[in-house]
């Protein structure tokens, strides 16, 4: 299979911080059209992996290919990354955030953005600084889902938000994900309700991959849900 037929190929990826080696030679290949769960406890290297793919961290070794492209400006244009932290300019209104993002991505769908705004129940004139954490998480998700980016990276999208926001986000993902042209990676340490989303999963622990495969295959092989498997692996 040629690399460009994969949405994401990571080979022997290494990343070291001053006091810890976050990624110890991670290799994965994600085919197009699937939603992957990147699962692992806090500090397992999930966020580091996504940030390396998004170009926000520079690996110490290994290779990354996004749709066959090495890390580059062109590759960034194909990625929609939603980090865990608040990355929005707080003085902007919701409308300004959308307009700002729209200017940089050719795959921005204005109509979809409008629909998502309504679905996520956000006031376009509200200032980011006045939004709750759940609202900001929903807004960040709109920024990713209003695009037809071939690769969507969601880093802990459900972390620390209220259940209603979580449900909206899950529903939003299910509604907007275009399986035929998009690939999505969702990193999380709380599998629970989100298990239904994943076509495949990668278990990451202390910078190495413990387990990976098709979600249904794993359920069949181990005779338990991904959530139970997660608990067993990281017990």
């Amino acid at each position: 299979m040629r690399a460009s037929e994969q949405a994401l190929v990571v080979r022997d990826l290494r990343k070291r911080y001053p006091k810890v080696e976050a990624l110890k030679g991670v290799s994965i290949a994600l085919p197009k059209g699937e939603i992957w769960g990147l699962l692992g406890p806090n500090g397992s290297g999930k966020s580091t992996l996504l940030k390396c793919v998004a170009g926000l961290l520079q690996p110490d070794g290994g290779e990354i290919e996004v749709l066959g492209l090495p890390p580059s400006r062109e590759a960034k244009a194909e990625i929609a990354f939603v980090p865990e932290v608040d990355t929005l300019y707080r003085w902007m209104t919701v409308r300004q955030v959308l307009d700002f993002t729209a200017a940089f991505y050719q795959d921005w769908q204005e109509e979809t953005a409008g629909e998502l705004l309504e679905f996520m129940r956000l006031d376009p004139e509200a200032k980011v600084s006045s939004l709750s954490k759940g609202m900001r998480a929903r807004l960040k998700l709109i920024l990713a889902l209003a695009r037809t980016a071939p690769l969507i990276l969601l880093d802990e999208p459900f972390s620390g938000i209220d259940p209603s926001s979580r449900d909206r986000i899950v529903e939003g993902i299910i509604r907007q994900f275009k399986g035929e042209e998009q690939t999505m990676i969702i990193s999380t340490h709380a599998v629970g309700d989100t298990e239904q989303l994943f076509d495949a999963v990668v278990f990451l622990d202390e910078g190495t991959i413990n387990l990976q495969g098709n979600a249904e295959d794993l359920r069949t092989r181990w005779g338990k849900s991904i959530n139970d498997l997660f608990k067993e692996v990281f017990a």
Partner: peptide, 14 residues
């Protein structure tokens, strides 16, 4: 400080 650098670094601009 405000983590908006995530947005800047992710943008496909020189």
């Amino acid at each position: 400080r405000e983590d908006t650098v995530y947005t800047l670094l992710a943008l496909p601009v020189p």
